[in-house]
Simulated assay, not measured.
Amino acid sequence: MSEADHGPEQGPPPDVIELAGRIFDFARHGDTASLSAYLDAGVPVNLTNDKGDTLLMLAAYHGHAETVARLCEHGADVDRLNDRGQSPLAGAVFKGEDDVVAVLVEHGADPTAGTPSALQAARMFDKEHYPRRFGQGEA
């Protein structure tokens, strides 16, 4: 059968796209309770947007340590890179989100993952306390 027999390839229905947008907003805005309810209902914890950003990346980058912790408890991949090769830990280091960095490190995030890695970002932006937190000595 050809594509003509099936019609054009269609994306997700508009209501699914709208729901996904709300779920990404819960992560972006640190609405841990709402996000948790959807995760408990079966939303994939490693759901990604059109840029490859996971829920964890959005929560980490926007400084929501409680949301990051909840996502980690649900099994989020702490080292999953977005489409630009960035890790959630590197995003949190770049933004100076100490509480988020602490949660990610506690859950095993690799400071050498991605480009630039969290370790490289710490050194680029003179954030000397992060390499020590990663067990990497001085910046």
Rank of each mutant, 00 (worst) to 15 (best):
D50S: 15
N49A: 04
G21W: 04
H107T: 02
E128Y: 14
I23A: 00
A69L: 05
Y130S: 09
D126L: 10
K95N: 13
P12I: 13
L55D: 07
M1T: 11
A69K: 12
G135Q: 10
S87G: 09
A27I: 09
T115M: 10
P12L: 14
R22A: 13
L19P: 03
P14T: 03
R133D: 11
T112E: 10
E128D: 15
A139Y: 07
P111K: 03
G42H: 05
P12H: 11
R22M: 14
V101L: 01
R28N: 08
V45P: 01
R28V: 02
P116L: 08
L35E: 03
P88S: 00
T32F: 05
V68M: 02
D40P: 00
G91Y: 08
F134E: 02
F24C: 01
A109E: 08
D31H: 09
A69R: 15
F134V: 10
A76P: 02
G85M: 12
L47Q: 08
V68R: 09
G114L: 06
A109H: 05
A92F: 04
G91L: 01
T32K: 14
V43D: 04
G75T: 01
T48G: 10
R22H: 15
N46C: 13
V16R: 13
G114W: 06
H64T: 10
P14A: 11
E18K: 15
G96H: 06
L58S: 04
E106N: 10
L104N: 06
G75E: 04
L81V: 02
A102R: 12
T48S: 14
A69D: 05
S34N: 08
L39Q: 00
A113T: 01
S34F: 00
V103G: 02
N49T: 02
M124E: 10
G21Q: 11
E18W: 06
A118V: 03
H129N: 13
T48W: 08
P12W: 12
S117V: 04
A65R: 02
G108D: 03
P131S: 05
P12K: 14
H62R: 15
R22W: 06
A20E: 12
A4L: 13
G63F: 08
E18C: 00
F24R: 06
G42K: 08
N49W: 07
G75K: 05
H29W: 15
V16D: 11
D5T: 00
F125T: 15
H29V: 15
P8W: 10
E18D: 13
D126C: 12
G91S: 10
L39K: 00
L89H: 04
K127N: 13
G30R: 12
T112R: 09
I17G: 04
A76F: 02
H29D: 15
T115G: 13
D99N: 12
